[in-house]
Design a protein around this nucleic acid. Structure first.
Length: 458
DNA sequence: ACGACTATGATCGGATTG
DNA sequence: CAATCCGATCATAGTCGT
């Protein structure tokens, strides 16, 4: 222990006032890479490239080494390794079928991106005791607890990289339809315990729980029970009218199969609800707030387009709250939260709805609209302190250290970095973690690293 | 009238998965 | 094979100031 804290102090000293190159090497060392490989990677990739490129580069060179090692393995292991190369056989080997999917995550061999089917995460409120077992390295346990969110279906390798940045923890892959009337597949990478979770009460689970007034207009041939709040492109009123007109012009009841298919496709695509006979309409911002677990009018004040924009990037509160619920017993007197990419404050709303007291929240959010939304919600509901910062870039090591001195520590570091360059719906710049926006993940990792380091040496 | 700026509508693939 | 997806670009029509 003494050696570890001595090393940390040593590393911390080094982090102050040293060049970019040294800083990058230090981070790589902190992550457990040998120094010579770290230096070699910087030499190969250049100094200007991001941390994720460096890490990929090291792993690429390491995996070449692994293949050589393979020759020394037993024939059984070789056979297994060969099986793993074939996705179909691999699935069989690990029983990835719809039923009887074993909820066991052996992190040493698990491919982090094979989602459970159904995508229930480690456990569900309906069966909280049937929990996936997982191992987290000693140095990765909290506090600080970390909680990172992003979309599940990022390009290949992205989640592996994210895991490597964050202590090799595997993400919990969850579809929010198990928690609310909205669907959405997300990965939540965290080091929170998974026993003793409990859900928020009273969240609507179907469209008709949430909006009973629409049930009478809902045609039998529209089987949707839940909505997808993530789709953002606004539907033009013209297009909505076109859909309604197509329907009205069909004499049949129910309408012809081709009309049904077209209308249903559009409804799914644009997340439309039935507001009248043959009449569909997009969700109002208020309705999205309800589905995502926010108080009504949470985003009021911003103009409509801004509200949609903010809501589409927001946490599904019920899902996040289920994971965070374990904090309530751990910190009955409150905790300090570092909230990165806070958006409209999904994490804060989740903690509040759980009844977890927040002494201080340091919130980093670049959008002025979102900052205003969070601030006004905070002033209405909270007694603790809110410190707002406009950019992750300005949260330097020094600033983190001074905040920690003032607050005594962060018990939770939570956030979801931009997915613009990860999502399949981005046709032009699906550049992965290197993308213009998604590269901000580097700052999440940097800040987590810095907070842990500083707290270890406090 | 003019330019700068903002909001809107139409249009655009592709990797991944079951 | 079909279904999925936390988006971006471009042209064009408004809006605001001078």
């Amino acid at each position: 222990m003494f050696v570890i804290s001595f090393l940390c102090a040593f590393v911390q000293d080094l982090l102050q006032d040293i060049s970019d190159r040294d800083k990058k090497i230090q981070y790589l060392l902190q992550m457990g890479f040998p120094e010579d490989e770290a230096k070699m990677a910087i030499k190969r990739c250049g100094l200007d490239c991001s941390m994720s490129v460096l890490i990929d580069s090291i792993h690429a060179s390491q995996s070449v080494g692994d293949e050589h090692e393979m020759k020394d393995k037993t024939s059984l292991e070789r056979q297994k390794a060969k099986l793993m190369e074939d996705p179909k056989k691999r699935r069989k080997l690990y029983g990835g079928g719809a039923q009887g999917n074993p909820l066991v995550l052996d992190c040493s061999h698990e491919d982090p991106m094979r989602p459970p089917n159904p995508m229930v995460g480690f456990n569900l409120p309906s069966d909280p005791f049937r929990s996936a077992k997982r191992r987290i390295a000693i140095h990765a346990t909290g506090p600080p607890f970390i909680y990172f969110e992003d979309m599940t279906r990022a390009p290949k390798g992205v989640w592996d990289t994210i895991s490597r940045f964050l202590d090799d923890i595997k993400p919990e892959l969850v579809e929010s339809k198990f928690f609310s009337a909205s669907t959405g597949k997300r990965g939540y990478l965290h080091n929170l315990p998974t026993d003793g979770r409990y859900p928020l009460p009273l969240s609507p689970k179907t469209i008709f729980d949430a909006f009973p007034q629409y049930e009478k207009w809902w045609p039998l041939w529209d089987p949707r029970l839940q909505l997808n709040c993530s789709r953002t492109g606004m539907v033009s009123p013209k297009h909505v009218k076109r859909i309604s007109r197509t329907l009205a012009e069909d004499p049949g009841n129910p309408p012809a199969a081709s009309v049904q298919k077209y209308v249903l496709g559009e409804c799914r695509k644009w997340n439309l609800v039935w507001v009248g006979k043959n009449r569909v309409a997009p969700l109002e911002p208020d309705e999205m707030e309800l589905l995502l677990g926010y108080p009504k009018h949470h985003t009021r004040g911003a103009c409509t387009t801004e509200r949609y924009k903010s809501l589409r990037n927001a946490f599904q509160v019920d899902t996040v709250a289920y994971h965070l619920s374990v904090l309530k017993k751990m910190y009955p007197n409150g905790l300090n939260v570092l909230s990165l990419f806070s958006g409209i404050g999904g994490a804060e709303v989740a903690l509040h709805r759980l009844g977890v007291r927040m002494d201080t929240v340091v919130s980093v959010e670049s959008s002025v609209v979102n900052r205003r939304i969070l601030k006004s919600w905070w002033n209405e509901t909270q007694t603790g302190r809110l410190i707002e910062i406009d950019s992750v870039k300005s949260l330097t090591d020094d600033r983190i250290r001074s905040l920690l001195r003032e607050l005594g520590g962060f018990q939770l570091v939570i956030g979801g970095s931009p997915c613009n360059n990860l999502t399949g719906s981005n046709r032009r710049h699906r550049d992965g973690l290197e993308g213009e926006h998604s590269v901000l993940f580097d700052d999440y990792a940097r800040i987590v690293c810095s907070v842990k380091l500083a707290m270890e040496t406090m």
